[in-house]
Design a protein around this nucleic acid. Structure first.
Lengths: 228, 228
DNA sequence: TGCCATTTTGACGAAATCTTGACCCCTGCA
DNA sequence: TGCAGGGGTCAAGATTTCGTCAAAATGGCA
């Protein structure tokens, strides 16, 4: 699976140019023409990186950036036509990871994309996440409990990944919902009950009693139980 | 303790300029004039970030970068006089985290430094509130007395958190009620009796007598008993 | 098109938690 | 001695949150 990049720009010519260039470098490209579409596509296609233009028809790039930073940690490279200090500082301080002024050089953009992706890899994408007997291999996309494979759906997989990343730290309901279903679903606590129920059942059928590693703190959130 | 930055440049004027500017922004500055000194200082003073000039007398910046990347993951911002694509790509692909061309704008440099430091701050310090033998881990949402776990409900947890934040200072009834139950419930003093009763009971069953750490000042409020 | 895996929704009992009221104690005071 | 106010304790509802099951909707994909 190639690395997916979301390109947000209202000018078709620039989008096409970036699409062709990025695809020539083995990236998969998702396009958005405005802020709302960008946030929508971000939830749908979970890209590994976002290239965000400053000037958009419905809301400006900074607003999009602030919105997505409420729940996403995806790397963002900001693009702009103007070379203004204030804009740069504003973007970088609001969560942009890099900033390029148009016209930019393609090799430089590619190099900066590699840097951004390198960063997010080292921070989050360790090939194997594990906690106690529960482990998850992000390369093969497989998960095991005590070396017994669990057949998880992709949503179940994402939930386990989220808990594993937090170790024995408690993850609040709303944070889970935001991460997995997007900021619109912050209220749907019922999802959590259903999905953690399914996951517990699969854990139990792998190793009876294993479902207990998923703990609930009533009214607050879920966490993994530290190894006894 | 301030964040430490290693500035590597052979030109004294630029080093001084950066030193003054960085110190004005609450950073601590360590200087090096050449590649060998840079690697030396990196080991000695363990900075949180390196600003590395491309042209150095003994070895060029790329070589320094490659060397330090053999064992260090410290963020590196590359500086150069020439605006060359090849140089940029080479630096970024060899482990530089950002790249700026002289003359650069100071606000932009500061913003990019903040980004780099933000990136490297992956692990947060575990926020533990404690007073005497009572402690509360806000990451795991667990509480202990003398290392015995107390199974608190979320409201009980919030109450203990409130008392812990005030240390041995007295917290008035109305303040507690407003914080936990909202401004509508400022009159319901009965809640406090019931809840602190429950908490005392849980403390006692963890360590007999421990319930006494919650003291009441008649007609005024509650507080934690200073350590004997 | 129809099938299948998955996601979303609804329903319901169980568990945990919160709220309320009854009753006790103690203290200070008339 | 009686009584009022504040505090502590207990336990019975009331309410919220959980866990579970299963039906309906959705979305690829042959």
């Amino acid at each position: 699976m190639n690395t997916k990049i979301l390109v947000v720009d209202d000018e078709t010519s620039i989008r096409k140019f970036l699409k062709v260039s990025l695809e020539a470098n083995q990236f998969e490209v998702v396009e958005a023409q405005n802020g709302h579409e960008a946030l929508q596509k971000l939830i749908e296609s979970k890209p590994s990186l976002v290239i965000l233009d400053h000037g958009l028809p419905d809301m400006n790039g900074i607003e999009v950036l602030k919105k997505l930073r409420e729940w996403s940690t995806v790397p963002v490279i900001f693009l702009t036509v103007r070379d203004s200090d204030e804009e740069k500082v504003e973007a970088l301080d609001n969560g942009a990871d890099d900033y390029l002024t148009k016209p930019f050089s393609l090799p430089e953009l590619m190099a900066r994309i590699r840097v951004a992706i390198r960063h997010s890899k080292t921070e989050e994408t360790q090939p194997v996440l594990a906690f106690g007997k529960l482990s998850l291999n992000q390369a093969t996309h497989k998960s095991t409990y005590a070396d017994v494979e669990l057949k998880l759906t992709s949503t179940e997989y994402d939930l386990i990944k989220l808990l594993l990343r937090s170790g024995e730290k408690l993850v609040p309901h709303r944070m889970i919902l935001k991460e997995i279903w997007g900021p619109h679903s912050v209220e749907h606590n019922h999802y959590l009950r259903v999905y953690f129920g399914q996951i517990r059942k699969k854990l139990d059928s792998a190793v009876p009693g294993a479902g207990e590693i998923i703990e609930n703190e009533s009214g607050v959130g879920y966490r993994l139980k530290p190894i006894a």
